[in-house]
Amino acid sequence: MTASADCLLYTPKEAAEVLRVGRSFVYDLMAAGELEYIELSRRCRRIRRAALKQYIESRPRTN
């Protein structure tokens, strides 16, 4: 399943697909506070599209 670009909320797996990284890396980012998420229930976390964009923009650019 590919995450749709018009989604407002992404699962960690979908966020990983968007960022083209592994799912566990997304969980590491969330745990470190580098990727903001919302907790819908005790075991249900979602990542806003804006949070993904903010994370990407916060990364240093390399040549």
Rank of each mutant, 00 (worst) to 15 (best):
D28C: 07
E34M: 05
F25T: 03
L29V: 09
R20W: 08
E36G: 02
A16G: 11
E36S: 10
E34R: 12
R20V: 10
E14C: 00
A32N: 05
V21F: 09
A3S: 13
I38Y: 11
E36I: 04
K13T: 11
L9C: 00
S24M: 12
T2P: 15
V21D: 06
D6H: 10
R45H: 13
P12G: 06
R45G: 00
C44T: 11
L29I: 04
A5Q: 13
S41M: 06
L29A: 02
A31L: 08
R46Y: 02
R23C: 10
I47M: 05
R45V: 06
R42M: 07
C44Q: 15
V18R: 13
E14N: 02
D28I: 04
Y10E: 04
P12T: 01
V26Q: 05
L35I: 08
A3K: 07
L35C: 11
V21T: 10
E14P: 05
A16T: 10
E14H: 08
E36C: 03
A5R: 08
L8Y: 15
L40F: 14
R42H: 15
R45S: 07
V21R: 12
R46H: 15
P12M: 02
E14F: 04
V26L: 01
R42L: 08
D6A: 05
Y37V: 01
S24N: 12
S4T: 06
A5N: 06
E36Y: 03
Y37S: 04
R42F: 13
K13S: 13
A31H: 14
R42G: 15
L29H: 05
K13D: 13
L29T: 12
A16I: 00
E36T: 13
E17H: 08
P12C: 03
R46E: 11
Y10V: 03
T2S: 12
C7N: 14
F25Q: 04
F25N: 02
L9I: 03
A32M: 07
A31P: 02
K13L: 10
R20S: 13
A5F: 09
A31R: 15
S24T: 14
T11L: 02
R23P: 05
I38E: 14
M30V: 15
Y27A: 00
F25K: 06
L29N: 02
L9K: 03
R46S: 06
Y37E: 00
T2D: 13
A16R: 05
A3Y: 07
R42W: 14
G33N: 09
I38H: 04
S41R: 13
E34Q: 13
Y10A: 01
D6F: 12
G22T: 04
G22R: 11
E39R: 14
F25D: 02
